[in-house]
Write a protein that binds this DNA or RNA. Structure first.
Lengths: 196, 196
DNA sequence: GTTAGCATGTAAGGAGTTACATGATTTT
DNA sequence: AAAATCATGTAACTCCTTACATGCTAAC
């Protein structure tokens, strides 16, 4: 998860660890917080595996800053990670979806649609399960659990509506490609997106 | 987390591992899934630490079922875990709150209110941060990130409303104690709740 | 008789957190 | 000169997941 986030951020431009953490906090915010104890080892790993490489700013004083840039291998790795968004349930997928959405602009339109549809499937199944349980346990559970179930259902329904909106927007964009007004929906070829 | 859930379930009655997992899936559902690889070691640990003890059903054939019962130490431990619901942010607290809510009926009214109010504080801070970020990054982020932020805000606002409802209900119940109609809001002394 | 569900566990490993340790630079 | 913030890292630990391993019992 943290690897995908790091690679995604480095698609925009080369950065050093400290900067990555701040940008991560800015984009993902209170959802998916990242600590240095996770970030630096991840960078080290990615470098050892050739997904990122260090870049030394020309003649800059460089006060002990390790700036990393995405390699071609890193680009591929990002794509692989993004695609690995499965159908299996779990709260972990909630974060996975959010992180992917934050980097949607670097994905191919088909990839985006795929992610959205798999997300929709997961949410629909979750809703069905919650509904089932609500109707079979209604009499047996206390008011608190009931409220928890109801709220969970409501929240899931709203999530589905939201995803549906995103899917509709994606389909509209696919029909009339619209030449990137303000860059908002600018589509970037997944491996070649160099938006520096 | 899993420890609190196990102890909470055992407050109702003695159970064995397999049963605990099913009941857990029934109550918490797709939120907070539990695997055997987490459950059995947890039971072992709790037993070693004296929070639960094995109970051997009288003369029953007992086809290799390890039934556990909560001890007095386990009761105390549950209370301690419940109270340890802090103000610090993080997605992890989301699960923590849900699990606690599922066992609200075993808590003292003051404990319930405390948990609800700390939850409210966390959510309010999260909302404020999301709002801040939305207003300062509105121009710089793409449509996807914007949508993510907006939906996050919406969801958080609804969560706050929900918690407010729970707080109001709690306050109402505190004013007129209402003699547990149907047992829905039955208040149990936190250490002595033996609802078997 | 064989598939499905009941029942318990372990080993290896993944993905983080917390706390510690260090030092440079900028702001007040 | 002190405080804040920039900047990097490690070690130990927590908590859980996945995959494996085993065997019993009920239903079809």
């Amino acid at each position: 998860m943290i690897e995908m986030a790091v690679l995604g951020l480095l698609k925009e431009r080369a950065m050093h660890g400290y900067e990555l953490k701040k940008r991560l906090a800015d984009t993902l915010g209170p959802l998916f917080p990242v600590s240095y104890g996770a970030l630096y080892p991840a960078l080290k790993r990615l470098k050892a595996e050739g997904a990122v490489e260090e870049v030394f700013p020309k003649a800059e004083v460089r006060r002990r800053k390790n700036v990393y840039r995405l390699t071609a291998e890193g680009q591929r790795r990002f794509d692989r990670l993004v695609e690995s968004f499965g159908e299996r349930e779990g709260v972990s997928d909630d974060n996975g979806f959010r992180v992917r959405l934050a980097f949607f602009r670097y994905m191919k339109p088909e990839t985006r649609l795929g992610v959205l549809e798999r997300r929709r499937t997961v949410l629909t199944e979750r809703l069905a399960e919650l509904k089932d349980r609500l109707s079979s346990y209604r009499e047996r559970v206390d008011a608190y659990t009931l409220s928890l179930m109801r709220h969970g259902m409501d929240a899931t329904e709203r999530d589905i509506d939201w995803v549906d909106d995103l899917i509709r927007a994606e389909r509209r964009a696919a029909r009339k490609p619209r030449r990137s007004r303000k860059g908002a929906m600018a589509s970037a070829s997944s491996t070649g997106g160099d938006a520096s």
